[in-house]
Amino acid sequence: MPVVLARVDDRLIHGQVTVGWSERLRPDHIILASNEIAADPWQSRVYASSVPPSIEVSVLSLARAAAMLRGGEVQAARTIVLTATPAEMFDLAHLGAPLPSVNIGGMHFGAGKVEMLPFVFIDRIDLEAMRRLLAAGLELFAQQVPGGREHAVGLEQLAAMEPRL
């Protein structure tokens, strides 16, 4: 079983992932893909320590994460892949990571970000990255937790956001 959830969430590893989605999807492995965090062993340990011992965790650069996801070892495990931004998720897809669809799970408010949904705030860089993900043939859906409302994110929704950014 390959990737069971590819999620964009700026909190990365936290309760919605390690409890909410993991209770539902029963992953064997969580891959946190971030060049910044993977380059810092201490930060990597902080994030990894939040994962229950029953789930394997890897904190990897985007290139290493994509390589691992292309390989047979991870193909055999139920895997959740996390990035903090849509642009990083696009990089993973562009590097050949096989992703089923992309869950927009949490993009909190920050400078220059505009509300698309109560848990999704985006800027122009995010918008363009989401467009590239759609152009790559990936379906996007915004949903915080299993059982929560699922919102489709397509070209129409992104076009509606554009004048506000």
């Binding site: 909190r11 936290h14 309760g15 902080v46 994030y47 939040s50 229950p52």
Partner: peptide, 17 residues
């Protein structure tokens, strides 16, 4: 409140070494 949540992670990152 909870081990492994965003509060704990942010606190660890802010406190550093």
């Amino acid at each position: 409140d909870d081990y492994g949540g965003s509060c704990a992670t942010a606190a660890q990152l802010a406190c550093g070494h």
